[in-house]
């Protein structure tokens, strides 16, 4: 990787709500095929940053550049069409529809044809291991499956970059290991770039090529997972001394 292509670039992105600055002057670059972890304490502005990138909020200042195009302030559906998908921290399945139909709606982003969308959706379901539940009504499934639907649906829109918002939250260790495996598999198969918000440190450290840390809306560090784990400021604001002690061993 001599000169990796930048797919997503944030330049001085700021989002204010009244007097509160939820995201303050954040700049970062996501390379093609990379997994970039975004960590930070609760209320650090991680989800707000996602909402700005995906078009749900207009940035107060700064620019979001995706594949060389300025997408700041564009509506979410246009951003999705350009190839940037997202999942929600609080899952939002289409509860009355089946798993297959949920994923088909994602696939319809790239086709008018219902048959093509159905085939595409089935393909995605195989990758995400939801295949045996395809005809179940989404609202009846447990949280693990609903998180998988969230990912499958976003994948079906055929994104170049996927924003994953806490897909491991609420999962037990074996379930999250399953999702980690799925994401690694996905990366191998599709070469997709991922930006992920995560609180489970073992997952972040295992999955990410690089990690950045957000605190009070500001980017306080970014670099390789091992470097981040050693960073004084990060330990102080987020990881805590015990984690530092653990990695030290």
């Amino acid at each position: 990787m001599a000169n990796p292509k930048v797919v997503l670039k944030l330049r001085g992105v700021t989002k204010n709500f009244g007097g509160v600055s939820a995201v303050n002057n954040v700049s970062l670059e996501l390379f093609e095929g990379e997994v970039f972890g975004l960590i930070g304490p609760n209320g650090a502005g991680k989800t707000t940053l996602f909402n700005v990138i995906a078009g749900f909020y207009k940035p107060t200042q700064g620019k979001v550049i995706f594949n060389g195009r300025d997408i700041s302030g564009k509506p979410p559906y246009k951003i999705c069409k350009l190839g940037l998908g997202r999942t929600f921290q609080i899952v939002k399945p289409f509860g009355d529809l089946t798993v297959l139909e949920n994923v088909m709606i994602g696939a319809l982003n790239r086709t008018q044809n219902m048959k093509v969308a159905r085939e595409k959706a089935n393909e995605i379901l195989d990758i995400t291991r939801l295949a045996d539940k395809r005809d179940k009504v989404a609202g009846c499934l447990n949280i693990v499956d609903r998180k998988q639907i969230e990912i499958a649906r976003a994948l079906a829109t055929k994104p170049d970059v996927l924003l994953l918002d806490e897909v491991m939250a609420g999962l037990n260790p074996s379930e999250s290991a399953e999702v980690v495996e799925m994401i690694q598999h996905l990366r191998k198969v599709t070469g997709i770039s991922l930006l992920l918000i995560e609180h489970v440190m073992s997952v972040v450290m295992k999955l990410s090529d690089r990690v950045c840390v957000l605190d009070h809306g500001e980017l306080i560090a970014q670099g390789k997972p091992t470097e981040i784990a050693q960073d004084e400021r990060v330990i102080k604001s987020y990881l805590g001394d015990r984690y530092y002690a653990n990695t030290d061993k």
């Binding site: 998908g85 399945p93 709606i105 994602g106 982003n109 079906a156 829109t157």
Partner: peptide, 26 residues
């Protein structure tokens, strides 16, 4: 109900934000 438009209507009915994130002009 069985067309793309109908599925998009169903998505909007179920959750507007999720629909928008999947490329639907709500």
């Amino acid at each position: 109900k069985h067309s793309k438009t109908g599925y998009y209507f169903a998505a909007i009915k179920a959750n507007q934000d999720a629909a928008a994130s999947l490329g639907i002009n709500v």
